[in-house]
Design a protein around this nucleic acid. Structure first.
Length: 561
RNA sequence: GCUCCCGUGGUCUAGCUUGGAUAGGAUGGUAGCCUGCGGAGCUGCAGACCGGGGUUCGAAUCCCCGCGGGAGCGCCA
């Protein structure tokens, strides 16, 4: 709604003034809802800016715009006041479950989460997982046909190190706890030994070759333990309410990779160096080895094959990877190679959303050294903390309900903590920050939703089919809330354009903020009938939008908190 | 050595793409608000654009040079 008003107004102004106008929100109070400065026009016409602003304002005031209440100059600015009573009326009709769906049926592929089999979910994996799923939901809401893809690296050095560890320490044993965690412990042990002992490292490379050649014994044992990993990962994805369209192993592309080497050779993009194969990308990007001297392929080779598979299967308009920014060069090389192979259009629509590190107490985490903070531990800690709070507030609640709420609150705290930052910022994880329940947090959003919802429940009045008289909307807090509700369209749009959920996360918090101020000052259930119904409708809209936002962020809703 | 990213009150962060009025918010600090629709809340107060040049009528935003932090740079992923 907000976006429509702005666009419409900008178009009109362009017509009237014959100048490209960019409207923005005034930064000072009492200066209306939209404004633009006239410096450039003044310069062009050799006029004094303040005089010109007055002139333009009075010219524009003669025209009639449906949503505009007043246009007036303040210094060199033309300021526009919106008629929120009229906007409210349209807004009430607009806000529903299908609000704002566009871009029908175009396919977007999002590759995210993609945990390494050697590591249970830690805070780094979570960043990819939460950003990816939220993006998927946002793009879906916008109308795209989203394909969620998870890629399991079962051929790399880490995976083979794990396989070696399993065969040395735990051969034929089965996990006695959450399997990914069980295997993670094995990995931690073996990787330290491999680092010290070059014989062991050689064994890892030997396994790599055997696995790529699909040697029966090696391949079957590998598949067995990687399937266990998936069982563990699935438990997490279930908690996060994530369902992938494709969970695909790197080893599915062994054959395609061989063909790809031929194609690269044909395009004269390879060079033999010391028996290994070098992919030539200079001068644009650094060259890189793509096949080892023992003949086994590297990650980039299989990732190329994987990308082409996605291209052929889905024909996506966007192909998005949510992967750490440390792999930025890798993706540049990947996209550039695709272009050189003749997949220019596809390559131009590939995006790497590279997020920065998650630090722990200011330090880099390392799975190998065991300093990574695991999801399972963080979640548990969050649940305990939430349990305390709930028991204080709701002593009579039965245990099942308490635990269910505590889990939702813990999840909300952690998810929002990760999603609210723009991806290029590194996050400093501390127990205190990540599990906070006050201020700019997930639980605050849940709490706001619950108290808003509780008013609606108490009222029991039907407000669906009323033709509201919005002329009695006069309180400042009412207007501010309407304004914020109307901005949902902008927030969603910006999140889609920038491929980043943090914009929506921030919007949701601001909406909750506006609502809580409204809640504090404006009586609803005790107001006179007309005001009461109108305010209930306002709350109804808030609840609907907040619900959409929480859902798009993947934060569970709690009806009573 | 080269390339990329980041630098905003004590701490964390939005704004930077597309320059515009008194830089928005959180947290911590501080002073208040529960006979009231849920105090996981609300309302005051104090506190910030890394430094130096440049472009411009105008720079947190664009350009250059520094400084600080992070990431990457042929057989890890």
């Amino acid at each position: 709604m907000w976006k429509d008003i702005k666009n419409e107004m900008e178009t009109e102004l362009r017509k009237e003034l014959n100048f490209n106008i960019k409207l923005e929100e005034p930064k000072i109070k009492g200066a209306g809802d939209l404004a633009f400065s006239v410096f450039e026009i003044a310069k062009n016409k050799q006029k004094n800016p303040s005089d010109l602003a007055k002139e333009i304002s009075s010219e524009l005031s003669k025209l009639r715009f449906f949503f505009i209440k007043q246009i007036a100059a303040i210094g060199p600015y033309v300021n526009i006041w919106i008629d929120w009573q009229k906007v409210a009326k349209s807004l009430f009709n607009e806000v529903n479950e299908e609000y704002l769906k566009k871009e029908k049926n175009k396919v977007v592929v999002i590759d995210f989460s993609s945990p390494n089999p050697a590591h249970p979910f830690h805070m780094g994996t979570l960043r990819s997982t939460f950003i990816g799923e939220s993006l998927a939901r946002i793009l879906e809401w916008y109308g795209y046909n989203v394909k969620r893809v998870c890629y399991i690296n079962d051929m790399g050095k880490q995976a083979m190190t794990l396989l070696l560890g399993y065969t040395l320490y735990a051969k034929d044993k089965t996990p006695n706890k959450k399997p990914d965690v069980w295997l993670g412990e094995i990995y931690k042990k073996i990787s330290l030994e491999v680092e010290e002992n070059s014989d062991l490292e050689e064994q890892v490379f030997r396994l790599m070759k055997l696995y790529e050649e699909q040697d029966k014994n090696t391949f079957e044992t590998g598949k067995k333990i990687f399937k266990w990993c998936l069982e563990g990962f699935n438990e997490n994805w279930k908690i996060f309410d994530i369902k992938f369209d494709e969970i695909i192993f790197e080893s599915s592309f062994i054959k395609d990779s061989k063909n790809l080497i031929n194609e690269l050779e044909k395009n004269k993009m390879l060079e033999d160096v010391d028996n290994a194969k070098l992919l030539k990308l200079e001068p644009k990007l650094p060259n890189t080895i793509i096949v080892r001297k023992d003949g086994t392929g590297l990650y980039l080779l299989r990732d190329l094959a994987f990308a082409l598979w996605k291209f052929k299967k889905f024909k996506p308009v966007k192909n998005i990877y949510v992967v750490g920014e440390d792999q930025k060069l890798h993706f540049q090389q990947l996209f550039y190679t695709l272009k050189k192979l003749g997949y220019s259009d596809f390559s131009n629509n590939c995006y790497h959303i590279g997020y920065s590190l998650v630090l722990f107490e200011g330090q880099k985490m390392s799975s190998r050294k065991g300093t990574a903070v695991l999801w399972d531990d963080v979640f548990k800690e969050g649940v305990d903390k939430a349990l305390n709070e709930i028991e204080k507030r709701w002593p009579d609640l039965d245990e099942k309900e308490i635990i269910e709420r505590a889990e939702k609150i813990s999840l909300a705290a952690i998810k929002y903590f990760i999603l609210k930052y723009s991806p290029e910022k590194s996050i400093n994880f501390t127990w205190e920050n990540a599990l906070r329940f006050e201020g700019d947090t997930g639980p605050y959003l849940q709490y706001t939703y619950a108290r808003a919802n509780s008013i609606l429940e108490k009222s029991k009045e039907k407000i669906e089919k009323i033709d509201f008289d919005t002329s009695i909307l006069t309180e400042e807090n009412e207007i501010k809330l309407i304004k914020q509700i109307s901005k949902f369209s902008s927030a969603l749009h910006d999140s889609v354009i920038n491929i980043s959920p943090h914009i929506l996360a921030n919007y949701a918090f601001e909406l909750a903020n506006e609502f809580n101020s409204f809640y504090e000052k404006i009586p609803v259930l005790k107001a006179e009938k007309n005001e009461r119904l109108l305010r209930l409708k306002l709350i109804d809209c808030t609840v609907k939008i907040l619900k959409i936002c929480l859902n798009l962020l993947g934060i569970p809703i709690i009806e009573k908190m």
